[in-house]
Design a protein around this nucleic acid. Structure first.
Lengths: 130, 130
DNA sequence: GCCAAGTGTATCACTGTATGAGACACTTGC
DNA sequence: GCAAGTGTCTCATACAGTGATACACTTGGC
């Protein structure tokens, strides 16, 4: 469910935390679910346990995960705090960049629209099966 | 047209190159247009000229800009090379992350859809006026 | 032809971030 | 009480980002 790409310039700890974010947003990880231990996940991904620990700490700062020494980490929420309008502004900034890159790469507007719809659908898909 | 946010963790040189990318994708900068000199832009943005130079060099590697010593930099193309299917895969990865973050921030699916459509429209807006 | 002004380039130093190795501390169950 | 499992801390290293400064190329006016 979670993969790491060493060629990607995105820091490993971010690849990990973002992967878990997506799993939570998509419903693959529900509130209360236990995350693998830092050693377990580090072993699976063939990276250092500190790197996983850092990802967990970041998720805890966002309030998505609750980490307790000796006990492991669990999903604490599927909603981060912070005001909506700021989030919407961030969303627009991100989308403007992503769409620009897609168009520069020669992707047609229709292709981009279809990809966007597909991604949104994927996100809801798992969520529905409650 | 181009702004720099020191609080944003995105490297300055990337903020610069991405801003120019967006300007090219949106049509604000047409092929052949001259970019400000590295000193000029660095002065405007209150950053080091090397940082701007690095952004220009990156844009040149992508083939979007042509830089010549002593002569300045011009927009060389509004299309980067590379195959479409890879670009589409990248697009999907990026969108999956951006949408996940938006939903975690509590944004409704409809709000996200509306933002996406608005961003796409903005992108085409300037382009039309030829 | 020369030179001043404008342009990008190269080098060096400094700082902070990312990653990893290893030791430490807490919790649980037997 | 203790062994096994869990997260945390500290230290070291490598590299990326940024800036100051000096260098090299191009153009235009004379």
């Amino acid at each position: 469910m979670l993969t790491i790409d060493l060629d990607d310039s995105t820091p490993l700890y971010l690849q990990v935390s973002q992967g878990i974010q997506r799993a939570i947003a998509g419903g693959a990880l529900r509130v209360g679910a236990k995350l693998p231990s830092v050693r377990q996940l580090a072993g699976d991904l063939a990276i250092n346990l500190n790197t996983v620990a850092r990802a967990y700490r970041q998720l805890e700062e966002q309030g998505l995960v609750r980490v307790r020494q000796g006990r492991g980490a669990r999903v604490a929420s599927d909603l981060v705090s912070g005001d909506r309008s700021a989030a919407e502004a961030d969303l627009r900034r991100s989308l403007a960049q992503v769409f620009s890159e897609a168009r520069l790469a020669g992707l047609d507007r229709m292709v981009v629209e279809r990809a966007a719809r597909a991604c949104l659908d994927d996100l809801e898909a798992t969520k529905e099966r409650k």
